[in-house]
Design a protein around this nucleic acid. Structure first.
Lengths: 230, 230
DNA sequence: TTTACTTTGCGTCAACAAAACACAAAGTAA
DNA sequence: TTACTTTGTGTTTTGTTGACGCAAAGTAAA
């Protein structure tokens, strides 16, 4: 290493976000329709160039806010992609993040570049630009593995939800069906939900009790060495 | 995004490697004593600037080879660090990798910059430059979690080893002691070891049988849906 | 108001996996 | 021989998971 950084050629670096949303019983990602080259008229993840005065997280928040009007999301670094040919313009690294959001709690605000912005179901993705298919696939796997040992899924639901709703979300994330009664017992026994007293009304059968994620209790349990697991 | 990359300021990017080694019943990392600023006379991870014509993996191999004479190691991306002040020279991102190596199988070749290069026990690390303490701590946790569901530890041992040696390695990685008999049964039942017929001689008690990791068999088992677990 | 139907909440039981522990066999050291 | 250490295998106890039964609480229709 040398003390003068300017003598080394530097790559461009983008921060690309895989924003997961869950609504009407579907797991989706937020995609943006590009107008400019490269990959004009292709769908891509929300991304942008990292500025030298911001961390990855700050860049991700700027990008999510300016391109979709989203703020304060759960964010986690996923992986950094660096193949030589992933961007036709030259050497561009992508530090990828994944985010979880409840689409009902935010209105999408399309940025001033006026691209089309849309929730696309994971089960039916369009052709994507760059290596974004690859990034989404990795994010999907990471989410599936994460959800089994950390209560992250709640970010995707309304504040109050029924156990059945929670189970449906888990089944979509994991891609497999779970026994309703065992799931119920497991999640209740974990102690991380608090009853709200309310019930989901207006359906054609017995109204289910609604619960909320008890973050304080969860942190307390973690302190005591408890391990969340589904 | 714009088609001309040159208009955006670009960060420098290094690839930094956490090389784990296990020998004489200790888990160590390979560290390099710096002579130049910044952090002259501090110990740091093996790292170097990414070149525009190489992937992270190629860069890691170049760095490990040129600075320590190591080649063909098990490599895995760990995390990308990007805080604003992690390098006093300016904005430098670090794409970190961790590597596993059996110190007995390689002779360290100190690079032509003639730094001091040393295996430092994880339990007794010196003060490190940059945020490398932080990187090592993350790598340590990742290795501990990985070793429970993937047979990666074998990279750290000789080709042939006894079950007791394997258990000692696991105990050091996990930081907890395991029941000898249960460990023995579990690892044998997994089917990923093949007997060599040889025995560890010259000790003061019953000679133990030596085994080798059966990679072919492991891949076959994975194919059948088997899940490795300790 | 009765009956049929759906979904919820809770319980049971068997199968399997993990943790705790007993012990003989195979070597070395005195 | 005897004492000692470590290895390889077995058994028992405990805990967890998966499969499934069923009454309770609601709606819809007769």
């Amino acid at each position: 290493m040398n003390n003068d950084l300017s003598q080394y050629p530097r790559p461009s670096v983008t921060v690309d976000c895989v924003v997961f949303g869950y609504d009407t019983q579907q797991l989706s990602v937020l995609l943006l329709h590009r107008k400019e080259e490269p990959f004009a008229n292709h769908w891509t993840l929300l991304g942008g160039f990292l500025r030298l005065d911001e961390t990855f997280e700050v860049a991700a928040e700027r990008i999510l806010s300016s391109k979709a009007g989203l703020a304060g999301l759960y964010l986690e670094q996923l992986y950094t992609f660096g193949s030589l040919d992933r961007d036709p313009r030259g050497r561009v690294l992508a530090v990828s993040y994944f985010a979880l959001v409840n689409p009902r709690q935010y209105n999408l605000v399309v940025g001033n570049m006026a691209h089309d912005l849309r929730w696309c179901p994971l089960s039916d993705l369009p052709t994507l630009g760059f290596d974004h298919h690859h990034i989404i696939e990795l994010a999907r796997r990471r989410l599936a593995s994460k959800v089994t040992y950390q209560p992250v899924g709640f970010e995707l639901l309304n504040e109050k939800f029924t156990i059945t709703e929670l189970q449906d979300l888990y089944e979509r994330i994991l891609g497999q069906s779970l026994d309703r009664r065992n799931f119920y017992k497991k999640i209740m026994a974990s102690g991380i939900l608090k009853a709200t007293g309310e019930r989901r009304e207006g359906l054609k059968s017995r109204p289910a009790e609604m619960f909320a994620f008890d973050k304080t209790r969860y942190e307390q349990l973690i302190e005591e060495g408890f391990q969340f697991k589904i």
